[in-house]
């Protein structure tokens, strides 16, 4: 596999997905650092894994489920008290622009 490189534009795109902003100098620095790290990642391509199943979790537990019983923990007020801004029982955020979000 060819060496993975990441361009400055790609770094900027990923930053957008992650809701992070970088100035030009930071963007340059991150591009270099991420490229270095991706080079380490590239060593994985040495390993043949065609017939290997991925492992996403090592929990031995299956079917740990909760019965469908409602239980209100009564945390509303404490939750709202911790919010940076709240009013009338609602969390307050700056205006959401049309077309933002999902």
């Amino acid at each position: 596999m060819a060496e993975t490189t990441i361009t400055r534009d790609e770094v900027a795109h990923v930053a957008g997905l992650a809701k992070l902003a970088f100035n030009d100098a930071e963007l340059d620095q991150f591009t270099t650092q991420l490229s270095d790290i991706l080079n380490i990642f590239d060593t994985l391509s040495e390993v043949g894994t065609d017939n290997v199943d991925p492992t996403y979790s090592v929990t031995e537990t299956v079917n740990h489920l909760r019965d469908d019983v409602a239980d209100n923990w009564g945390q509303k007020q404490e939750l709202l008290d911790n919010a940076p801004l709240a009013a009338a029982g609602l969390i307050k955020v700056p205006a959401i622009l049309d077309g933002e979000g999902e």
Binding site: A70, Q75, K76, L79, G89
Partner: peptide, 27 residues
Amino acid sequence: QTNSKLLSPSPVHYGDEPNENTNVIDF
């Protein structure tokens, strides 16, 4: 229309006061 939410035991109920049926998981 289950009694409780998918991932937390908070009640599923329409029309209650805002954030009434929430806990740390829902937040």
